[in-house]
């Protein structure tokens, strides 16, 4: 299937040059809070991707019928309905992850990525482009979460997705030499790690200004 330049850009742009988290600084709250472990971060990334993509499609399909003055409320209601569905599905099929994510699933409603994409893209583009734009932004958000969570879980608890990576016998408690970095589990380190991701990203993309 041949995709036009604009359509390709809608999907690929947010992965790197236009990343919602490290370039546009949207959706930071949840990106920081759910990254202590890889599994909740991955689930959160998937949930946000699904919700952004679907709400983009719905709003884009409705864009010509929504009165301009009440559009924020309409957008919020569509997003809130989708979030309620996703939250219910998570509670039913992945209860432990849903507990780990606590209020942050509900907070997807006020995630700036959603409102930002709906306002900036879905209100003025067709459903197919909006779907790709939503998926691109969702994946862009997800990779940042996964990178941060990978570092935090590996260094903070020596596991990945709950599986032990650093052998038990290495730990000081078992006569070894290794100790987990307690700082990594603290909220403060999430901020510093995201700062470092932004730093690396900007060093690699020199042409970007501020």
């Amino acid at each position: 299937m041949a995709l036009s330049e604009k359509t390709r850009e809608a999907f690929l742009g947010p992965l790197n040059k236009n990343n919602p988290v490290v370039v546009q600084i949207l959706g930071i709250c949840s990106a920081l809070a759910v990254t202590v472990q890889l599994k909740p971060a991955l689930v959160m990334g998937i949930a946000v991707t699904i919700i952004v993509a679907l709400s983009n499609v719905v709003i884009s399909a409705l864009r010509n019928t929504i009165p301009n003055r009440i559009r924020i409320i309409v957008q919020l209601v569509v997003v809130a309905a989708l979030v309620t569905l996703v939250s219910g599905i998570l509670k039913a099929f992945a209860y432990d992850v849903s507990v780990a994510l606590s209020v942050y699933i509900g907070l997807i409603i006020t995630n700036c990525i959603l409102m930002g994409r709906l306002e900036a893209y879905a209100m003025s583009n067709g459903p197919l482009d909006s779907l790709l734009d939503g998926l691109g932004n969702g994946f862009g958000y997800m990779w940042v979460l996964v990178v941060v969570a990978f570092v935090r879980e590996l260094l903070g608890s020596g596991t990945l997705m709950g599986f032990r990576i650093i052998p038990e016998s290495w730990y000081v408690a078992n006569g070894g030499f290794y100790e987990n970095c307690g700082m990594m589990v603290m909220p403060a380190m999430a901020l510093i790690l995201v700062g470092c991701v932004i730093w690396a990203h900007r060093s690699l993309n020199k042409e970007e200004v501020k």
């Binding site: 403060a188 901020l191 700062g195 501020k210």
Partner: peptide, 23 residues
């Protein structure tokens, strides 16, 4: 501040340090 870190990068790190203090 180092160029790529200017603006938001350094702000994040400052907030991180403030969060440590608040701990």
């Amino acid at each position: 501040v180092p160029k790529p870190l200017q603006g938001l990068g350094i702000t994040f790190i400052v907030v991180g340090l403030m969060a440590m203090a608040f701990m």
